[in-house]
């Protein structure tokens, strides 16, 4: 038989056999009895409900009305409880928000404290400012200088030129990558002592009658002024860096 239709037709109407050894009748009836004993059968439940008598003396509709009232009361109680809960939750949340706000402000303050300039750095900075503007009074208060807290501060070429010593060429500003945390582009130690300047710049062969004498004298005067300013700066630095 190679025809598909024949195969399907020959399967039609055939019933598998239930072996005698496992006839299901008894087990099914046993389960039915168990159900009847448990009172789960619809027949039994139906008959019981039809035989039931009212347990109280209330009229038929009274139970329904009372049940309805109780339901409404329960619903109202749930709504009120939910509203109260929401109010309490809101107040607690707002309190917590206030607390967290004060914490934030404290954190900000601590951040400000962290950025306070160390004395050493203050000295470096004030020296740099003094070198930038030598005409100002040396007793300029250091307190006003507190804006260079960032450890990776880089300086402009002008600042670098002002910080160089011994007439060495100005160093190129280093990249932030080259700097370690806490390291500044300023020299770590105070500028080394300069060599004593030769104050007498007038050549010996130039006399007072020589027309070049005035020019040499002017240059000498200027050099003396510069030297005196340098001394003032050194004194200022020494005063500031004094422990």
């Amino acid at each position: 038989m190679n025809k598909i239709n024949d195969i399907l037709d020959s399967l039609q109407g055939r019933q598998p056999k239930i072996k005698d050894s496992w006839d299901l009748t008894e087990s099914i009836l046993k389960k039915v009895e168990e159900q009847q004993a448990a009172g789960l059968s619809n027949n039994i439940l139906a008959s019981r409900s039809s035989q039931e008598t009212p347990s109280s003396s209330f009229p038929a509709g009274t139970h329904k009305r009372k049940a309805s009232l109780w339901r409404w009361a329960a619903a109202a109680a749930i709504i009120i409880a939910a509203g109260l809960g929401a109010t309490i939750y809101q107040s607690q949340t707002s309190q917590q928000k206030g607390e967290s706000g004060s914490l934030t402000s404290e954190t900000n303050q601590s951040h400000l404290r962290d950025t306070t300039v160390s004395p050493r750095r203050q000295a470096d900075t004030s020296a740099r400012i003094a070198q930038d503007d030598l005409t100002q009074e040396p007793s300029r208060p250091v307190k006003s200088v507190r804006t260079t807290a960032c450890p990776t501060t880089t300086f402009s070429k002008k600042e670098m030129a002002a910080s160089e010593n011994n007439g060495q060429p100005a160093r190129k500003p280093r990249n932030n990558e080259d700097l370690k945390p806490g390291q500044s582009t300023m020299p770590a130690e105070p500028v080394a002592e300069e060599q004593p300047m030769a104050l007498s710049s007038v050549p010996q062969d130039v006399t007072e009658t020589d027309p070049r004498f005035d020019a040499y004298a002017h240059i000498e005067k200027e050099m003396r002024e510069i030297h005196s300013r340098g001394e003032k700066v050194e004194a200022l630095v020494a005063e500031i860096t004094k422990p």
């Binding site: 019933q15 598998p16 239930i18 009748t25 099914i28």
Partner: peptide, 20 residues
């Protein structure tokens, strides 16, 4: 009507069909 003997007859006659 709740007759279990009648139900036994139903089970005996129809269980092969349901099993099939």
């Amino acid at each position: 009507a709740g007759d279990r003997d009648a139900f036994r007859l139903v089970v005996e006659r129809c269980q092969a069909m349901v099993f099939s």
